[in-house]
Write a protein that binds this DNA or RNA. Structure first.
Lengths: 210, 210
DNA sequence: GTCTATAAACCGATAGAC
DNA sequence: GTCTATCGGTTTATAGAC
């Protein structure tokens, strides 16, 4: 696989990812992808076999280059979770890094809308995405929460993980309605910082950590 | 408009709603809608003018028959919010009713997936949906929260509303992944009750109401 | 590997019979 | 109001030239 071929494949994945994020798998045509990637309609089938396979590759691409597993890292360094201050720092750090990575300047804006859309769409790739992208981080979060509150049962720890997920994800998949309700044009850096702070505080309060 | 015509229109809306929820506007064909509604491909254009217009009608149908504005009701009956117990009851009641209505037996399972998908899709109907379906409830929630905590500024009250929205919506749009992570086949009544309880407690904790 | 041309199927919308 | 037939356009996928 030479450089040129890699360039074409990457260009197709990036063009496709952006279009899939906006219009979904079924709403995006191979022609539109080829045109956006400055390629031709035969290239998609040559490099990926089919549109469905290219869709799966765009999801794997996001999992590879947009990965954010802050809870996994905090859980590996368990010693920092021994003190109350360390626990607070961990929760704040996890939330802050999620917002920071998801809305970073150099994170393509289609990464997470595509990820969340893939959760809503019935697709054969869904199980793979959940297993590789969401399960490791979710598992680490439940472990951390049960470490902080040993009396919490496993079922409740799962719900806490979903609360964190929902509190962050809403700003991705309901971006347009949120901006409408706030009368804003876009999320500013200051706004995202205040959201991260607010979400951290709410999650800490639910753990009796202040 | 006779009964038969009403039947056909309703059948088309219900068939279309289910397909739009699964495959989106662009992923659903007029032929598939007509077949599912046991009608013919000319019926959609005869009754609704276009596929886009039928899409808009399915959203209005959900807004009409699936409406759940518990916060609006609680805010209208402001006297119940004077005591601490009344405030706790209000928050619990709002959360419980949202889960109850969204996952009710007689609520078609496509109602809220379609609603949430419409937030993610760039569509001319989005502004109308936000204005008619989400804004009234969101406004009531911010009012109630600011009544409970008068020192909270308006921006933070908005964030609290989004926290509530995200905490509930995650169980709609990430239903499949959540079931995978829990190793379940479906949400049970007991599970949804425990989720409603957990979310209420977390939201109350963030307001220092226990 | 890249591209044009094209095949075969499908799309939304509509005309016209009943 | 319902339905079939059909128009004009687009879709994915592929064959074959370079």
């Amino acid at each position: 696989m030479n450089t040129h071929e890699l360039d074409t494949k990457t260009a197709l994945i990036q063009a496709a990812g952006e279009l899939f994020a906006q219009h979904g798998l079924e709403g995006t045509s191979v022609r539109a992808i080829a045109e956006k990637a400055s390629s031709n309609i035969a290239a998609v089938n040559y490099h990926f076999g089919s549109k469905e396979n290219l869709y799966k590759e765009t999801l794997l691409y996001v999992a590879r280059y947009g990965e954010t597993y802050p809870a996994v890292r905090f859980w590996k360094d368990e010693t920092r979770l021994q003190t109350r201050e360390g626990q607070i720092e961990a929760i704040r750090g996890i939330v802050a890094e999620k917002f920071r990575v998801i809305f970073a300047e150099n994170t393509p804006s289609w990464f997470w809308p595509l990820m969340l859309r893939s959760l809503l769409d019935p697709s054969p790739s869904l199980a793979e995405v959940v297993q590789n992208v969401f399960k490791p981080e979710h598992d680490a979060i439940t472990q951390i929460v049960r470490h902080i509150k040993p009396e919490m049962d496993e079922a409740t720890a799962h719900l806490w993980g979903f609360l964190l997920f929902g509190a962050v994800a809403i700003y991705v998949f309901a971006r347009a309605p949120i901006l409408m309700l706030l009368g804003r044009q876009d999320y500013s850096r200051e706004f995202l910082d205040s959201v991260s702070d607010f979400v951290s505080n709410a999650l800490l309060a639910s753990l009796d950590l202040r």
